[in-house]
């Protein structure tokens, strides 16, 4: 028996919006600790790692560890049937379920709807990602990061991110011309619009702008985003999901031939 309830479906809708364009399907691994998803996109360039801790749910019960293979487009269709303020309960009866139920309850309890979704068998590769001490860790407003990725995507396919003590610079060039956006570290680190940089050594890396734009679909989840970088290893882009977990995106760098 698996059962997990959230007071408002909005958070689950936002989580799904943050991953459904990158991934077609994924295994939701449910344990007593919570729900985890780790999946690569089809081209093996990026990876999504999602964690929702059990203590962040209004109600959470997981008698046995189970893996639910989910078609994310199907789940998104079902989640769109809920109102943002609905309470949502995810329920699977068996230890090895072939279907999962979503129950939406309006705040006044006058409307209750339930949707059953077929599960899939997904044979997915899992990557072991070691704990890494990155050369640069940048925290910045998530809306600013989304704006930069969107603006610079018009100029070129590749985005160069350079981080030093002075700040972080995003650069691109293409047929139209070139573009640079520099952000300096701000003085007040506690504010939502703060830019903070922890640096061991300066870093310059090149990434496919298209994937960065996909990652920014998580912007509604958090006012801040954290970028962790070291030379010649994948970028880590991390958004917190309130106090209940986080969504991490890893993106393989482009390296000179």
């Amino acid at each position: 028996m698996f059962e997990a309830s959230l007071a408002q479906s909005a958070i689950l809708k936002k989580v799904l919006d943050a991953i459904k364009d990158l991934l077609n399907e994924a295994n939701f691994e449910c344990t007593d600790d919570g729900i985890k998803v780790q999946a690569m996109d089809n081209s093996h360039v990026s990876l999504v790692s999602l964690e929702l801790r059990s203590d962040g749910f209004e109600k959470y019960r997981c008698d046995r560890n189970l893996s639910m293979g989910v078609n994310l487009a199907s789940m998104a269709k079902i989640m769109r049937c809920s109102s943002n303020s609905d309470k949502v309960t995810i329920k699977a009866q068996d230890d090895n379920p072939d279907k999962v139920s979503f129950i939406f309850e309006s705040s006044n309890q006058e409307r209750i709807s339930d949707y059953e979704m077929k599960l899939m068998d997904i044979d997915a590769d899992q990557l072991g990602i070691p704990d890494t001490e990155y050369s640069c860790v940048v925290k910045m407003p998530s809306a600013e990061f989304a704006r930069i990725c969107k603006d610079l995507n018009q100029f070129g396919e590749s985005l160069v991110i350079s981080c030093s003590k002075e700040g972080i610079k995003f650069s691109t060039s293409g047929d139209l011309g070139s573009a640079n956006v520099k952000l300096a570290q701000t003085t007040d680190a506690d504010k939502d619009d703060a830019v903070t940089i922890e640096m061991r050594s300066p870093v310059t890396l090149t990434f496919a702008c298209r994937y960065l734009n996909h990652f920014t679909k998580a912007t509604p989840l958090s006012s801040q985003v954290q970028l962790s970088m070291s030379d010649e290893i994948p970028l880590l882009v991390e958004y917190r999901i309130g106090d209940m977990g986080c969504i991490k995106y890893y993106l393989a760098p482009k390296i000179d031939d």
Partner: peptide, 14 residues
């Protein structure tokens, strides 16, 4: 032109 790498070049399968 820089070449796009595969994530599996950085992280091993488990």
């Amino acid at each position: 032109t820089p070449i796009q790498n595969d994530l599996q070049e950085f992280y091993a399968l488990v």
